[in-house]
Design a binder for these strands. Structure first.
Lengths: 416, 416
DNA sequence: TGGGCTTAACTCACGCCTTGAAGGAACAAA
DNA sequence: TTTGTTCCTTCAAGGCGTGAGTTAAGCCCA
């Protein structure tokens, strides 16, 4: 058997590149031409990659192109939101094959059970539409609105922002009708970051930060292509970073949390307090605020200005903490704000960060709009297809699982 | 030649453990008994480790103990402070062999040149006191008060807090009289964190955060024994995290920075504004504040209370962002505050963090008092002795240098 | 005191995997 | 058709880790 790690490295490279060549595989994975041949042939035999045409190479034999084979595997990614779910089915090229929405039956904020019902229904509908693909579905990934913690009995969701109690992920999705499928779960901001990292606006950055602004406020931090998360997986709860002493009350029980100002409820709540009257909830209400501000409504303008200012303060602190090259803003609130106030947000963020860091920064909206979270969630089973932890033994080379005194930077000589 | 990575892993384990056995080496590094024999014999031959006695093992042959050999190598670690430097010489067991202080000739804040002179003088004095060890000195590590960035021409220090311009590290220490010695540099908060990680209060923690409070305010974030730092090495500039909109002016040019409140100047400045009269600078002045507060001085008490409150707010945000098991507080201001207000700081921090994270947290002062930064700085050349980057080729197994879609947690099954 | 038991540590034959050179394959240009 | 070029595979050589078997070193008990 070829070495698991090399197989994983090559497969990951092909999937990320979408289209590549054998020699680029060798460069990217640090393998000799001989090993590339072996590993690539294995993956071809397994049907995970395929040769897709060729490319002239000057005077010589043309290079054959390698791509992930779309039919090699399928993945379900779910964006579990506060009002409903978006279920998307992807092939191994990470093209979307199908999708399905479901809203929870509830006027205001749904209970976990209502979301669970919507989730199970939507997944089941997608499932039953593709009887031929069911065998090939490698797993289901859930992007959840809260802290997801790996506990001995399974993953658990703590969604304080929604006022939910401790919910076991197993109780959110009934897989009894779906055969023996693996379910993975992560915080939605982190799966968003994973999507932007792999295929979106954060792609290729040495350091990037992806902010998700919705009802809740989350963060994914990327470094050298890796998402930073503790082993338990619960890092970067940005929403409850405090931006003011004795500030606004927050759903978490604290006060002055960032989320209390730039989360959807925080923004609309401040508008209401300023005399505004949002019609409806969510996207429409926020749209009304933006339009009112654009139309010259003073209260709305002030609320938006303050939102931008506080968001900039929060982002600036994040820039100082992580020194990212790229700052990617997503989530429905984030996208809405970026549509109308992108420049102001960027300025506020830069003004709040150390000039030295601000000068190395670029700010941009996320690349997949509202679909980023579902795509990123689908990457959870994908990563497990690429490098199944069960088959993984301890690797002395893998510095990540080893105690190190000081990190040694790869190209330069010292940590600094 | 045995594989570099295994040698490094074994040597690192022995140095961290101070005393261990062959079988524990095998467990810790994931090596078979045969490989352990090979690698250990190599290291014994090189004089980097030694057998130090034996330990009964029930009914069988006693296990021989392995330890780093003190004389195997020496390291110089320097704490470069705002007023002067502390130079310490360590052996391979990380015992301190010698030390030397030097203050810069200056009334108020010294210029870079004055610090450079003090630094060179102190290092030279230590050097000349140990002519027999000079050959064995593996390198000099500098812990510097500002952002240290690896640039093509060498490391560069940006010490905004001290009002310094861009300073090349090479200009800070004149090594012309020291033979051909390697000099490494890093931010002092990060070397403090490295020391606490290896041998101090953060040791063994899966996730820990080390805060350095002095004139400046810094942070080191540890995860699985690794210090988080971008490749350029400039992450976690905590001091300029903003804790207030339109707050106090900060030396960085911004306003409302954490450092403007809980850095030494921030604390003393607020006391002055409240009518206090600090005598002297630094440690003594802060001591006077603490004593005044203890003696019932209302203004001093309020300044300290506010300091604790804002520090707690900043720490709480850090806890939310990194979810550490341990929060370690060091630096001369930090140690002073922990002496008098440890409980209050811990409470303020917990109140500012998500309850779910606060419940997993322990707060403690750093383990080596004022020597932590120098010890940590000495770890810079140590790490390079353990695993010289020059000898390092690309390792396909090493996930850290590879683009990964989603991090796969080691023991549990998914990122979450 | 010696034999048996137990645990530690070493040795070495085996095998996996990578390497790199040599050669075959595919195409362009002459 | 020949030559040159680049791509890709094949294969022998060798590095390195593995683990069973072996030797070493102590304890226990007759």
């Amino acid at each position: 058997m070829l070495r698991q790690a090399n197989r994983a490295a090559v497969l990951r490279h092909v999937i990320l590149a979408r289209e590549t060549t054998r020699s680029r595989v060798g460069d990217a994975c640090g393998l000799s031409v001989g090993s590339v041949t072996n590993v690539v042939n294995d993956l071809l035999d397994e049907g995970l990659i395929e040769e897709t045409g060729s490319m002239p190479s000057g005077a010589g034999r043309p290079t054959t192109l390698l791509s992930p084979r779309a039919e090699g595997a399928y993945f379900v990614g779910v964006d579990v939101g506060e009002q409903g779910v978006a279920v998307e089915l992807f092939d191994l090229r990470m093209n979307r094959v199908d999708r399905e929405f479901a809203r929870a039956d509830s006027d205001s904020l749904p209970e976990p059970a209502a979301i669970a019902a919507a989730l199970t229904a939507a997944v089941t509908r997608v499932w039953s539409r593709h009887p031929d693909l069911q065998e090939g579905i490698a797993g289901i990934g859930l992007g959840l609105p809260g802290v997801v913690e790996a506990e001995p009995g399974g993953d658990v969701l703590y969604a304080q922002t929604l006022g939910w109690p401790r919910v076991e992920v197993a109780d959110l999705l009934d897989v009894s009708g779906l055969g023996d499928v693996a379910v993975y779960a992560a915080n939605g901001a982190k799966t968003l970051a994973a999507a932007e990292n792999a295929f979106g606006a954060a792609r290729g950055a040495e350091r990037a930060v992806v902010a998700l602004l919705g009802r809740g406020v989350g963060l994914g931090v990327l470094q050298d292509g890796h998402l930073l998360a503790g082993r338990a997986g619960t890092a970067a709860e940005w929403g409850h970073t405090r931006v003011a002493l004795r500030g606004r009350r927050c759903a978490c029980g604290g006060s002055g949390c960032l989320e209390a100002y730039v989360g959807a409820e925080g923004i609309l709540g401040r508008w209401r307090e300023a005399g505004g009257e949002p019609d409806g909830h969510g996207w429409n209400a926020l749209g009304a605020l933006v339009e009112a501000a654009a139309g010259g409504d003073d209260a709305a303008g002030r609320v938006l200005d303050e939102t931008v200012e506080i968001l900039g303060l929060g982002l600036g602190s994040v820039v100082n903490l992580y020194n990212p090259e790229r700052l990617v803003i997503g989530g429905w609130v984030g996208l809405r704000l970026m549509e109308s106030r992108a420049a102001a947000i960027e300025v506020a963020c830069r003004d709040s960060a150390l000039p030295h860091f601000a000068s190395q920064l670029s700010v941009q909206p996320c690349a997949f709009g509202g679909d980023s979270v579902a795509l990123g969630s689908a990457l959870l089973p994908l990563e497990h297809l690429i490098d199944p932890p069960t088959a993984r033994t301890f690797r002395p080379d893998d510095g990540r699982h080893q105690h190190v005194l000081v990190p040694t930077a790869a190209p330069s000589k010292e940590m600094s």
